[in-house]
């Protein structure tokens, strides 16, 4: 069964993680963009992360995509703290310095579009940690996010040092979905993207 789709965007694609990505992920985490995050030392944790990425999607707790440009893994889009019944999630991007803001925005957008169309998610949060590249804030505003809160000392960056978290939100105007009985929702037959009825449906990006 497959729960995370491959989605294409102008200049690249996002796709589910596989065990083959471990080396590329290890390289990615040598360049942590979140303050306080150390360069990764142990590749074994990444095998577990790939497993978790599948479990998260299967249980609707989160979703992770590799961002690929020219067949090279350049970053990750993660949706976590996904609350399906509240139609909201938090997003995060971990990217190599070479990933441009435009590529980053395009990858985030296709992921948000998928979650909005498939799961009706309409409240996307993004947390910018003080110390991250300031241009990311402008990039989020350009994508339609609004700054709604600054959480003081909400991100731990050392034994006893903390950074502020700036909370951005993007609310979609879409109406709340109307609940229907199982089996009668032809547009949303299930979350398994391997199901034949999903094959022609997925995409913007085609289901893998």
């Amino acid at each position: 069964m497959k729960f995370t789709p491959e989605l294409v965007f102008d200049g690249g694609r996002v796709r589910p993680l596989t065990y083959d990505d471990v080396d590329a992920l290890f390289h990615l985490y040598q360049h942590p963009e979140i303050p306080g995050q150390r360069a990764l030392e142990n590749k074994d944790n990444l095998l577990r992360m790939v497993d978790l990425s599948v479990q998260m999607a299967a249980t609707q707790r989160g979703m992770m995509w590799a961002i690929e440009i020219d067949q090279t893994l350049m970053g990750l889009v993660s949706a976590f703290d996904w609350q399906p019944s509240l139609l909201r999630t938090l997003l995060r991007v971990d990217a190599l310095p070479a990933l441009t803001l435009a590529q980053r925005a395009a990858a985030l957008t296709v992921c948000m579009d998928f979650m909005a169309s498939k799961y009706h998610v309409r409240n996307f949060g993004y947390q910018w940690i003080a110390g991250q590249d300031l241009s990311l804030q402008t990039h989020l505003l350009d994508m339609g996010f609004s700054q709604t809160a600054i959480q003081r000392g909400a991100w731990r960056i050392g034994e006893s040092s903390f950074a502020d978290v700036v909370h951005f939100t993007r609310l979609l105007a879409a109406d709340k979905p109307v609940a229907g009985r199982l089996g009668e929702q032809d547009q949303q037959p299930g979350q398994n993207l391997d199901h034949p009825s999903q094959a022609q449906q997925a995409q913007g990006g085609a289901a893998q």
Binding site: S85, L86, R88, R122, N123, G125, Q147, T148, A149, I150, Q151, R152, G153, A154, H167, T169, L171
Partner: peptide, 28 residues
């Protein structure tokens, strides 16, 4: 406690999406 902003449409209550105000108090 310090007011920090709000989280839009964060919970659902009585069939309405509710914004939550954020306050904090730090050890410092």
């Amino acid at each position: 406690f310090h007011y920090e902003g709000f989280l839009p449409a964060h919970v659902e209550y009585n069939d309405e999406a509710m914004d939550l105000a954020l306050y904090s108090f730090l050890a410092s």
